Simulated assay, not measured.
Amino acid sequence: MSDGPHADLDPALVSTRSVELAVMALLLCLAIFLGWDNWRLGAGWAPDGPQPGYFPFYLAVLLGGASLWGIAAALRSEELREEIFVGRSAFGRVLRVFLPTIGFVLLVQLIGLYVASFVFIAAFMVFVGRLAVWKSLLTGFVFSALMFYVFDVQFNVLMPKGPLEAAFGF
């Protein structure tokens, strides 16, 4: 059940039962794929010991069995049918975090980690946190610069870089 004083005012978007069924079905598909792939590699016992797919195959069998058990349990449960997994307003709040995060991942590929981090942090603070623009820009810059100093300068770790870092010779 949803918690909070306005839980009844938030219309249901999806039930717990449907989410559990979807997750179990995805896990079952994963188990079938992993089982098939490991069977292809060899899931038996060779004269010198287990073949490469032996242990992963049986783990996939266990995952598939657990998924089937979960599907059966979810279909039998009347409680889960009525229980609200997420309401419309709560889902909107999740999307306000999830969509910018997906954008950040795409930006890393285009403009590098440090510039993407600056954009993500500053934009997130302004639009989601409703903080002052100057504070957001300063925080994004300090965090990105600190991250660059720690990873690139001190630890010499290769991180995804974009055109700005290339312009400065990094």
Rank of each mutant, 00 (worst) to 15 (best):
108 V>C: 07
108 V>D: 06
108 V>L: 04
108 V>S: 08
109 Q>T: 01
110 L>E: 07
110 L>V: 08
110 L>I: 10
110 L>G: 15
111 I>D: 02
112 G>I: 07
112 G>Q: 12
112 G>L: 13
113 L>S: 11
113 L>Y: 08
113 L>I: 00
114 Y>L: 15
114 Y>N: 01
114 Y>S: 14
115 V>S: 10
115 V>F: 12
115 V>Y: 09
116 A>T: 03
117 S>M: 11
117 S>Y: 00
117 S>W: 00
117 S>Q: 12
117 S>I: 00
118 F>K: 04
118 F>W: 15
118 F>Y: 09
118 F>C: 03
118 F>Q: 10
119 V>A: 11
120 F>Y: 15
120 F>R: 09
120 F>D: 07
120 F>W: 00
121 I>H: 08
121 I>P: 06
121 I>T: 14
121 I>R: 00
122 A>F: 02
122 A>M: 12
122 A>D: 07
123 A>G: 04
123 A>S: 13
123 A>M: 04
123 A>D: 01
124 F>E: 03
124 F>S: 14
124 F>H: 13
124 F>V: 08
124 F>G: 14
125 M>W: 08
126 V>A: 05
126 V>P: 08
127 F>V: 06
127 F>N: 07
128 V>T: 09
128 V>H: 14
129 G>C: 12
129 G>F: 05
131 L>D: 10
131 L>Q: 08
131 L>V: 13
131 L>H: 14
132 A>G: 15
133 V>W: 13
133 V>P: 11
133 V>L: 12
133 V>Y: 07
133 V>H: 12
134 W>L: 08
134 W>E: 06
134 W>D: 10
134 W>H: 09
134 W>N: 11
134 W>G: 01
135 K>R: 10
135 K>M: 10
135 K>W: 10
136 S>Q: 07
136 S>V: 09
137 L>P: 04
137 L>M: 10
137 L>G: 02
138 L>H: 00
138 L>C: 11
138 L>T: 15
139 T>D: 05
140 G>H: 05
140 G>S: 06
140 G>Q: 03
140 G>L: 08
141 F>L: 14
141 F>K: 01
141 F>Y: 07
141 F>C: 06
142 V>Q: 01
142 V>T: 07
142 V>R: 00
143 F>G: 03
143 F>W: 01
143 F>A: 12
143 F>I: 14
143 F>R: 04
144 S>T: 06
144 S>P: 10
144 S>Q: 06
145 A>K: 00
145 A>M: 02
145 A>F: 04
146 L>M: 15
147 M>V: 11
147 M>W: 11
147 M>T: 14
147 M>N: 14
147 M>S: 15
148 F>Y: 15
148 F>C: 07
149 Y>E: 05
